[in-house]
Structure formats: structure tokens, C-alpha cells
Design a binder for these strands. Structure first.
Lengths: 225, 225
DNA sequence: CAGGATGCCGTACACCGTAGCGCATGAGCG
DNA sequence: CGCTCATGCGCTACGGTGTACGGCATCCTG
């Protein structure tokens, strides 16, 4: 019973065992050649199938993409027992996401599409909400605080991946016209040496500082850092 | 002299006046039907041309996309005179970007592609670097601090646009299973009421707090908020 | 054994980006 | 004036994409 046209069955086992292998193969293609290389025909070829047979197990390419996303989202979940400290948990969550994005850059290109809301994504949301709660942030602002961490992590990973994959861009940036854009050129020069992971950790601390300061208990909204 | 195969000529006037109209039309299509709807054939149709004639003015679709991006990037530039206060300038920069992303959501989907480095983007980088400099942040950390603001702004806009465009997702989220995911459901309920603009400004303050606190002068790296 | 479900496949359609080449027009120059 | 040549335009074609639809064989169940 592969699928009605209704909702996506997230559980591979409940859908069909073959579907899991399909997602495996799709992930392999994406890892080797990028998300654009994941086509139904190529996927069929790799599985020894004939293009249209893929649709026996997957309703559409969108669904396939959602399943790929959900699969990798398992890597985003922090293993229990979770640390008591909310800040520490939040840091772990962000770190896992950042690592996953660097390991599977295609995820970043998939964010704009039909957003996935599989069980793993929900589990992650639960962990995140738990962390924010234990920071003493009130419910009304919890989601805002959360989104700062998540969205910044994604943005930072996208930036890092773009620079990693486009060395030409990197050179171009560091040859920025220092006459017309003095401050930009200077900032870019200063950014050159440091590894992405170090920058991430440092910036993450900055982001967490801001969250605790502005959304945490005893926060003074009018205060400046 | 439309274009050698070498570098992209950013100046429409120097390239060909017709190219400017092409970019106009492409922007119109993207605004009406999204980035995926921008195809060479459709663009030609809207201009009364025959598909391949588009390539008389534009070397490739990638170039077209870069030109579209560059065009809108003009909206990101803060008009002079710039405010003295670095924090205020940074806030203006982020606000303009956020507004532009909401007005032209296709930009968010274009981030993953060949990154554009046109004059408007460079001007924006210069303004950003100026702001960070006047905050007293040392050169080595300027780029990190900057990227926090820019990347978070992009991520937040992407999130807002996704929710705005997919009302079904919105309902699904607020019907989140409160038994299995109690904290997530609670946080989502709390986030419901507030308008995106308000959330943006509040969160932006949080982000700026974190930057000033951790990267500003007299920052203590081991301090917690 | 009959019947239905299940997986597989071939054909076909409507798109996409663009390489290559031919044609017409019009401006510059001798 | 006549010649040349750059410029813009268009046609055809190639290889790629997602997928609607209908037909087939196999196998499990009643």
C-alpha cells in the first residue's frame, strides 16, 4: 500500500521497504553530485529500475525530497540524556544542525521548497522548545528566541558552504577594491585566516548571549549591551 | 557589444538598453509567479521575442539571475546621510534587507546559486562594514559579527515567507500534537498572535545585543549573559 | 481456482536551457 | 554611391526534466 494521494507516510517500513532503499540512493546521488543531480531517471538507473517504476514507491519528487530531508533530520536530534543546562542544550542543537548542513549541503538548497514536517523535525522542535523553556524564557517569546538560533545556523551554514564550494568567489572577495570599499575590504582581510568551525562557535556564543540577555528572565527591553 | 564570454557587465546602459527591459520583465515574472516561472521562453514571450533572441542580450540564465539580484540589491542600500550610531545603521541595513526579502521572496531562493557580487552588493558590504567599525569591533571579528546579522536576517525572512505562503503548514503547525511534543506545541501557540514585523524588530535587538556584548569593545569572552 | 492487489514498465506530453547557424537591417567608411 | 561588417533576430535541434496513463506479469488471499 505505497501511498494514497492524501498524506505522506513518513515511516518507510509502513510504506514499503523498497522505498527506504530509494531514499538511500537519492541521498547518495545528492551527496556525490548535488541536489540538482537527483532526478527520477538517474535514481531509477541506480536502482536498476525503469524511470516510471520509481513512482510505484514515491508519489512525487517533492515527496522524495521531503523523505530525504526527514531522513537526515535524524542527525539533528540530540541523544538522550539531554543536558540540564538550557544554554548547553541549545548549543548542542545548533552544533548538530551546523555539522549536518556542512555534511549534506543540499539540505540548504531544499529549505525554500515544501517545508518538511516529519516526526524527526517535530522531535527537534520539541528539544529546542525544551531548551528555551529551561532558560526561563516566557512562552510568548520562546518561538522568537528559537527561530533566531535556527535561522542563523542555517544562514551561517549556507554562507560557509557557498564560500567552500566557490573558491573563485573567495579570491574575488579578497581582491575587493580597497579604494572604493575600504571598510569592506579590511573586514574581509581580517576574516580570512579563521576556520569556519571556530567562527561558528564564537558567533553562536554571541547569538546565545543576545537571546539570554533580551528574552531571558529579568530582561530589560530598553537596555543596550 | 552586449557581452564577451568573460565577465558580466553590470551596467545595463553600457551593455545594451534592451537588457534593462529584459531584467524588468524577468523581475515582473518572478514577482507574479515565482522564480521557477522565470524561463527564457516565457521571458521571450513577454518581450515579443522568440526565445533564442533573449541570448542576444544575456549570456546565460545564470547571468540573468545575477542581474535581477543586483537590480533589487539597490533597495538594500541605506540612503545617505548614514546615521552616526553604528547600531542604528546596522538596524537600518537589516530592516531594508528584511523588507526587500518580503517584497521579493524569490531572492531567498536565489541565495544558494552563483552568488552575485555586483556593485550594489559591494556598496552594501561597505555600509555594513562601516557600521560594525563604528561599533568599535576589532577588524578580525568584524566579518563574523556582520555575517550574524546578514545571515540571520535572511534566515528569518525565509522563515516568515514560508509561513506566509503555506497557510496549510501554518495550520498543521498549530495543530501540533501536544501530547508527544508539549513544549513545541506550547511555544507555537505563544508565537501565533504576534505580527512578523514586530517579531523581527524584537529579535533583531536580541541579535544586536549579542554582537555588541561579545564582539564589542571591553568584551569578556567567558562571560555569560 | 478466481480475483484482486502489487509492482514494473513503455509511451507520450509539455516543458526546460542553449549550441549552432542563417538571415535581414542599418550604420560607417572609402 | 557602394561595400563591409557589426548587430539583432530567429529556426532547428539536442539532451535533459517531471509525470499522466494504461498495460502487463506475478503473487497472495479467499
Amino acid at each position: 500500500m505505497p501511498n494514497r494521494a492524501e498524506k505522506l507516510e513518513w515511516d518507510d517500513a509502513r510504506a514499503s521497504p523498497a522505498r527506504a532503499e530509494l531514499v538511500d540512493a537519492a541521498l547518495a546521488i545528492a551527496g556525490e553530485a548535488g541536489l540538482d543531480a537527483v532526478s527520477i531517471r538517474r535514481l531509477a538507473g541506480r536502482m536498476g529500475l525503469r524511470t516510471m517504476s520509481v513512482y510505484t514507491h514515491v508519489a512525487s519528487k517533492d515527496d522524495l525530497l521531503a523523505l530525504m530531508f526527514e531522513r537526515i533530520s535524524a542527525e539533528l536530534i540530540v541523544p538522550t540524556p539531554l543536558p540540564r543546562d538550557g544554554r548547553e542544550l541549545l548549543r548542542l542543537i545548533a552544533q548538530r544542525a551546523f555539522d549536518a548542513y556542512l555534511a549534506h549541503p543540499w539540505m540548504l538548497h531544499a529549505f525554500g521548497r515544501r517545508p518538511a514536517t516529519g516526526p524527526n523535525q517535530l522531535r527537534r522542535a520539541e528539544q529546542s522548545a525544551t531548551a528555551v523553556k529551561s532558560l526561563g524564557i516566557e512562552t510568548a517569546k520562546a518561538w522568537t528566541a528559537l527561530s533566531i538560533v535556527h535561522e542563523w545556523t542555517m544562514g551561517h551554514a549556507l554562507h560557509a558552504v557557498t564560500l567552500r564550494e566557490d573558491t573563485a568567489l573567495n579570491e574575488r572577495l579578497h581582491a575587493t577594491d580597497a579604494t572604493n570599499y575600504p571598510n569592506a575590504a579590511q573586514a574581509l582581510k581580517g576574516a580570512q585566516v579563521r576556520p569556519a568551525q571556530a567562527i561558528f562557535e564564537e558567533a553562536l556564543d554571541g547569538v546565545l548571549d543576545g537571546i539570554e540577555k533580551r528574552f531571558g528572565p529579568h530582561a530589560d527591553p530598553d537596555d543596550r549591551a
